[in-house]
């Protein structure tokens, strides 16, 4: 028995190696970089100092962008739950033979480039886009309505990107609910609404939690929707990192912002685990 103890490690070795090489080592590099200095030419100077972290907190400019990012992430999570639960519940209750087709439709957007999907909104909501063209054509407006490049369009881009993640998580969780529980609730006198509220909703919460966590983390780290659909003042923290690393070649400060974001996300996940339990997420993928 003891001689077999190496087998799980051998099986885990490829994935652990990948995680170590592609995640742990790069994160370590980022942490080390965050203590370095930057020369005016863009060259990095090895050092150990906390100036980059101090710079982040020396006034409210950078924390304000971080707070905006967290606020937008919470808004995205809320809207994705509201908009995602309904289709997921529909798929769960549906008995149509086209159920698999509906599920495929949820996955369909992933087949198109995220950038193309995001940019397509410009053709829909732009001043000469589809909506304005239609409204002008029917005479409802005389001049185009300016709809793009604000926080609303950023949120829309984020929801478009992340909604499938929420729907699929909730759906998988709902599929795991034993339907006989619903029948039992109905037999005991529950109305359809009461059965949903007392049985379905609580049992689907692990899936909702999993979706929330996934959407939150992905929103906090994304930069394309604010870049393409945002206007002045809609930047999120990932845009700031992008500008520091790419725009000014200030890798040390960009690394420090990344470490701050990583720490914040870690704290949120830890709190989540403390009060809700990460294991709830795994439950959502189990049968019963």
């Amino acid at each position: 028995m003891k001689s077999d103890s190496w087998k799980p490690w051998a099986l885990l070795a490829p994935s652990m190696s990948a995680v170590f090489l592609l995640l742990v080592i790069p994160v370590c590099f980022v942490i080390v970089y965050s203590f370095w200095l930057r020369a005016p030419s863009g060259a990095d100077i090895p050092a150990f100092q906390f100036g980059n972290y101090a710079k982040f907190f020396e006034d409210f400019f950078y924390p304000k962008i971080l707070i905006r990012t967290i606020r937008i992430a919470f808004e995205t999570v809320f809207l994705c739950v509201v908009m995602g639960y309904i289709p997921a519940y529909f798929f769960y209750r549906s008995t149509t033979r086209y159920k698999q087709v509906f599920l495929l439709l949820i996955m369909l957007p992933f087949w198109v480039s995220f950038i193309i999907r995001t940019m397509s909104w410009i053709n829909i909501m732009g001043d000469t886009g589809l909506i304005n063209h239609f409204l002008l054509k029917i005479g409802l407006i005389e001049t185009p309505i300016s709809m793009l490049y604000n926080e609303f369009t950023v949120l829309m881009g984020l929801i478009m990107y992340l909604l499938p993640f929420m729907v699929l998580n909730i759906y998988v969780s709902l599929e795991g609910i034993d339907k006989s529980l619903l029948e039992a609730a109905r037999c005991m006198g529950c109305t359809e609404w009461q059965a949903f509220r007392e049985v379905t909703l609580p049992l689907s919460l692990p899936g909702v939690s999993a979706g929330c966590l996934l959407v939150f983390v992905l929103t906090a780290g994304t930069y394309l929707p604010p870049m393409i659909l945002g206007g002045p003042g809609n930047d999120m923290i990932a845009n700031l990192i992008f500008k520091r690393v790419i725009g000014t070649l200030d890798w040390p400060f960009g690394s420090a912002i990344s470490v701050i974001l990583l720490s914040l996300l870690f704290a949120i996940v830890w709190t989540y685990n403390r009060y809700l339990g990460i294991n709830q997420i795994f439950k959502s993928f189990q049968g019963d």
Partner: peptide, 20 residues
């Protein structure tokens, strides 16, 4: 007064051509 800070030549041309 700014509607959009563009980030590439392609975006510049798109914003002007689409009258954004």
């Amino acid at each position: 007064l700014i509607k959009k800070y563009w980030s590439s030549g392609a975006e510049l041309m798109s914003l002007l051509a689409n009258e954004e």
